[in-house]
Design a protein around this nucleic acid. Structure first.
Lengths: 206, 206
DNA sequence: TGAATGAATTGCACATCGTGCAGTCACTTT
DNA sequence: AAAGTGACTGCACGATGTGCAATTCATTCA
């Protein structure tokens, strides 16, 4: 899907980026992000405070915010699903896959969220940024105009709602429920209601 | 529903609260909240900066955050819906009513959000705080245990998803679509899929 | 009525946040 | 080899959010 050689400079930048995120994740999971200063994170990653802000707009974003890079990845994944697949199903596959991808980060991220539940909110905000991109793809897939038809925004919002609810419930159950399985079940429940609307000419919308 | 005489002290506090919110709303709608300092808001409401922080944790909350008072109001409204009403329908009624209530604030709030779209995210986060309360009421209504059954969290998340999507679409359409009507339509669409699950003994859940 | 209580407001101090700017150095390009 | 570009850095500064002690005033209780 991509094959850039990636020069030394680029590699170094990515290394710094990763070191900062890891440090933030680690410290946030240990002591709660509120009790960690940007200076500590920067020191742990062995860069200056100023450099931290060149990579992330805030320490919270270093923990829960998702890069433009991953947004693009998600968009490509959704765009390359079979065109005849139901939108909600396509979203389910892509989101599950996305969850699986950075699975090593999730345990730390979850501990950080437990230490400071406000982070959950920040994470949902970042979902919204994703939604905007996903809605665009859904519009293309279905050929619907998002400014006139609420459908694309609705399916996408419902998909992330299912994702959110799964995480919340899994957290409330204290590990008794598997978030991934709960997510699948929730989507299955909703899929009947959210088949795309027919076009005005009667042609199916996807 | 309530009938507290409300002493002078209480009235003064509410007046201060309202003055601060109005000032924040006004200034935020005019110039965008990023370009407004807490000091300006406090001055406009004729109180000290320190007092501002006694009422709101941040200037963003003064614009979009909803009080504990309104949370309680919403909870009571939901709890007093007929017990045999479908959960999603009860949520629809209550949320529509909530939207209608502070209808004078919405135009300003919308302008503030247009001036700084990040506020939309903050608002959705505040929805999440509401969700927690609403989920509890839904659990009581349906008799389901939120730690074992994902249903209460799911219906509520879906309801707010519909609300969010309606606002987003209405905003994208540039006033062409009525958010309230779009919201109703979205809920209608989803209601079939989200009837509560039957209890294990076969009895209907609400 | 008069004293005690407690809540709202205030100024002050302080740690932290987030950003603009200019400079250095390493890598890349031509 | 020279010019150019981009990552990192220190510095300065306005703004944020919070603890603390003092003041004022509504409320309550003796």
């Amino acid at each position: 899907m991509e094959a850039e050689p990636l020069g030394r400079r680029e590699r170094k930048r990515l290394a710094t980026h990763h070191a900062l995120r890891t440090a933030a994740l680690q410290l946030g999971a240990e002591r709660g992000i509120r009790d960690v200063t940007v200076e500590e994170i920067a020191t742990a990653a062995d860069v200056s405070v100023r450099t931290f802000y060149d990579h992330f707009p805030s320490k919270e974003d270093a923990i829960i915010g998702f890069d433009a890079w991953r947004v693009g990845q998600l968009r490509d994944a959704l765009a390359s699903r079979p065109p005849d697949e139901a939108p909600l199903e396509a979203l389910r596959v892509v989101m599950a896959q996305f969850f699986h991808e950075s699975s090593d980060e999730w345990p730390l991220r979850m501990r950080a969220i437990n230490a400071d539940p406000a982070l959950m909110g920040r994470m949902f905000v970042s979902f919204i940024a994703y939604e905007r991109t996903l809605v665009e793809v859904i519009e293309q897939r279905t050929g619907l105009d998002g400014e006139r038809d609420p459908y694309p925004a609705l399916v996408t919002a419902v998909a992330t709602a299912a994702f959110r609810a799964s995480m919340t419930t899994a957290r409330a159950s204290g590990g008794g429920l598997d978030p991934a399985a709960t997510f699948d079940a929730a989507i299955a429940r909703l899929s009947d209601a959210l088949r795309p609307p027919a076009h005005e000419d009667g042609r199916a919308a996807c």
